[in-house]
Each structure stands twice: as C-alpha cells, then as structure tokens.
Amino acid sequence: MSNSTPPFIPFTRPSFNQETIDAVGEVLRSGWVTSGPKLAEFEATLSEYFSGRHVRCFANGTATMKIALQVAGIGEGDEVITTPISWVATANVILSVGAKPIFVDIDPITRNIDLNKVAVAITPKTRAIMPVYLAGLPVDMNQLYNLAKQHKLRVIEDAAQAFGSQWKGKKIGSFGDLVSFSFQANKNLTTVEGGCLVLNNADEAKLAEKFRLQGLTRQGMDGMDVDVLGGKDNLTDVNAVIGLQQLKQLPAYQTRRAALARQYFDVIRSELASAGLENLKLQLPVENFSESNWHMFQVVLPLDQLKCDRAQVMTELKDLGIGTGVHYPAITGFTLYKEQGYKTSDTPIAERIGRSILTLPLFPGMTDEDIGRIASGFVGILKKHRKN
C-alpha cells in the first residue's frame, strides 16, 4: 500500500464553471473580443447591483484607483490620507498623479485605518481620504463620511477586496463617494484581471471613460478629439463575460466563504485548546458575519511567544502542502517609500502587524476537510515553536 501525498492547498484559487468557459468561447467566436457589447452589459448589471449608480470598468484595480483620483481632481501638491497596510498600489497611484500619501496608523483589531487618528493628519493640503477594507471588512462608514463632510474632503474607497461586503445592510459601493473594486484573479468576483469604479453622476462617468481610453472625445462621424491625458485601461469583452458569469455565482460563493470562515474559528480554537495553547496570543480576524465578505482569513502571529519568525511558519506549512500569503507588509518599509522619508516607526501598529500577519487559504472550492488539515498543521507548528 503506497503512501499518498495530500494535494497542495493554495492560499486562494478562482472558480470557473463550464458555463463560464462556454461563454468565453462564444465571445471568442463572435469576433468582438475587446470592449464591446459584453462590457456594456457587465457595466449595466453592475450598476443595477449597486442600486443604479454609475459604474465603469477598467483593465485592473490599479487603474480604477488612479482614475478615481483624476476624476476627483487630485494632483500635484495635494495630500491623500491612507493606510500603510495595503497592497502597494494604493499608495503608488497617489504618487502617480503627483500627490503625496499621508499614512495614518491602523486599528490593531480590524487592521484597517484608524479613523480616530485621521483628523490629526489633515492639513490645508489634504484633498481626500482613501480607506482600504482589508480582507473585505469595511471601516465605520458613518464615521468616515462624517469626517469627510466636516473637513470637505473627497472619499476614494479602496474596496478592492470588498465586493459583496456590506455596511448596515447596504452593499459597499451602493452609497458613498468614489468606490473602487478589483476583479483580479484572487478576488471574490474575478474577471481574471480588471476592476470597476462606482461614480456619482454621468459627468464623472464620462470623464472616467476619457481617462481609460487615451482621453478620447468622440465627435460623431467627422472625427474625434482628445481633451485630457488618458491611458489604455479599458476592459475587454472576454473579461466582461467572465464577470457576468461570476455575478451569477457570487451568492453561492459568499455563503461558502462564510461557512469556511466559521469553521476556521471553531477548529483553530479547538486545536489550540487541545494543544494547551489557550494562553497563546494568536489574533484571529474580527468575527463579523453580517458585513465582511470573507475575502481572506488572516491571523496575526504572536511572534514574541514563538522561537521562530513568520517565514519559518510559512515554510513549514508549505512542507505540509499548505499555501499561505502575506497581506501586507507596511508600505512605509519599501525602499521607494523609505527614500522619500517615510518611516515604519511613524505607524508602529502597522509595522508590527505587517511583520506578523499571515493569510491562510480561503476560497469556495475548499472542503471542510481542508480546514481541519490546515488548522491542525498550523497549530502544530505553533506548539513546536512556542517559547517555554
């Protein structure tokens, strides 16, 4: 009898059914594969999803954020308040329009920007707040928009990870100011690559269209003109038809993600108790099942109680056939930002979380048995490296 190696569990994996594959084939056979009728249908369907708000799609979630800044008129000399715990694109787009990111430390529990500290960071140059909803958990939206109104600031929501999340029963994106989503391959809804921007009115939507396609202004049959500096950020019909199919499956995906997250809480706590690790200060996510979309399941390692670092934990999990991720190290620790004078010590909570946060696998295709295997292996590693 041969020993079988259990299959590798990646930290995430997209799900595509046969209907999606067939729909892509239809688009390819149609001969119209770039931006066309399927993109228009996808945008209209998203608009309906977001309570009738204007929606425009783009080639990726970085473009959506940059164009949101451009639509808001943010540029040279302006300041945008954001979080240091995010994918670096959040800060890079601020730099790319000539503005300056101002990093505010995070809440140690939610790991989102600490809105209680934002007011102190506001200066006469501040034009916008760009919160990030880490792992799909939104900030306090009432506090966010009250703060923005009080100081007359735009809000550009980096909701890249929050498609399907809610705030008090309302979908993120169905209200607010400019709201940016990513449809990259690891997101809850994917178009392989892509993103969308929810806008306030038809004028903003038209401007966003110009920015996504070289600033082009169509002038009927007689010609065309360009009146703003745009780029090449349009979404194709191939991507759009994948998004349309994903929207159909989203409710089932969301239900499964929440069920897997609940199992994580139960099984990890049970494994910790069985291993005698009740006093280990392992930080689990906020247990919010009414508002989070459970994009990721992240833990914060108690490194001060362990004889190893995060990299060792990740290596040993990989040896067990379990993939993990780091989302995210503090942006202020990257060379590009250090060279501009940013210091991780200015946001100490973000610096600590950035060194110790770990993403465990979570995607709809996982089984209940996968959760047990991950939790058992993970807690076993913690027990092995616990300081006496």
Rank of each mutant, 00 (worst) to 15 (best):
F175G: 08
M141C: 14
V120G: 00
T83D: 13
S182R: 03
K171N: 13
L137E: 02
I172Y: 10
Q143R: 14
G173L: 08
N92G: 00
D140C: 05
F181I: 09
I106K: 01
K152S: 14
K149F: 07
T90V: 15
A91S: 15
V132L: 12
L144I: 07
A89Y: 13
K149T: 12
A148F: 12
D177A: 12
L137A: 02
D105P: 10
A135D: 15
P138V: 07
K117S: 13
I156C: 04
I122V: 14
S165M: 05
P131N: 06
A99W: 03
N146C: 09
I94N: 12
K149W: 04
L115V: 06
P108F: 11
A119P: 00
W167C: 05
T123N: 12
G164R: 03
Q184A: 15
P108V: 08
Q166P: 00
V88C: 10
R111T: 14
A99R: 02
F175C: 09
P108A: 10
T83P: 11
Y133Q: 04
A159I: 06
V93E: 12
R154L: 02
D140Q: 04
P138W: 08
G169F: 08
V179P: 02
Y133L: 14
I102N: 06
K171H: 10
E79W: 05
G98N: 06
D158L: 09
S96R: 13
Y145M: 06
F163S: 01
H151P: 02
G164C: 09
N112H: 05
L137G: 01
S174H: 02
R127A: 13
V139E: 11
I172R: 06
E79C: 07
V132K: 12
M141K: 13
R127T: 05
F183C: 13
W87Y: 12
P101M: 10
T110P: 12
D107C: 14
D105R: 03
I156R: 03
T123Q: 09
A159V: 04
A128F: 04
T83A: 11
G164N: 07
Y133D: 08
W87I: 05
A99L: 06
N112V: 02
N116C: 05
I109M: 12
I94M: 11
I129S: 07
G176I: 01
L137N: 00
D105L: 06
A128D: 04
V88K: 14
E79P: 07
G164Q: 05
A162P: 05
D78A: 15
G176D: 05
R111A: 11
W167M: 02
L178D: 03
I172H: 08
L153D: 10
V118P: 11
N146G: 15
A128W: 03
Y133P: 03
A91R: 04
G169L: 10
K171T: 04
V88G: 00
V132Q: 01
E79G: 10
I106M: 07
I94V: 15
S96I: 00
Q166H: 15
K117T: 00
A91H: 11
L144Q: 09
K152R: 14
V97D: 09
